[in-house]
Amino acid sequence: MNKTACGRLAAAVLLVLSTPLVAHHGAASFDNEKTLTLKGTVTEWLWANPHCFLKVDVKGDSGAARVWNLELGNPTDVTPAGYRRTTFKVGDQVTVTITPVKSGAPVGRLRSVVLPDGQTLPRQ
């Protein structure tokens, strides 16, 4: 086994062991190596099983808006981190840190969010 293969194996072991447990579906579509921070306006907050979703309208450098669809865990599992059914309302200005999907689509998994009052809700 060469050094590269060895490193990849170790990384794979680490990835498997550190991948968060998601009850509904796996994490294969997400680019876990990448993190994005985006500022935008909330257009929808879906508080539901098996996953909550936050939609955020983000203006790009060109000024064109793009709505990002961000997945969270289920309500039971995100509640301890401080999320509630009433956490977001349409029009809220937020800053989100996310793990995007590999495809390049405006879709991701929410890692943390800064609320309009400056409070940060952590990773679920």
Binding site: L46, A48, N49, P50, H51, F53, N69, P75, T76, V107
Partner: peptide
């Protein structure tokens, strides 16, 4: 304990999110 259930209207709305991807 908190409520935890897959309500039909909610899971269908969640499923729509994935179709949008």
């Amino acid at each position: 304990l908190m409520e935890m259930m897959n309500a039909a209207s909610e899971v269908q709305k969640v499923a729509e999110q994935y179709k949008e991807k």
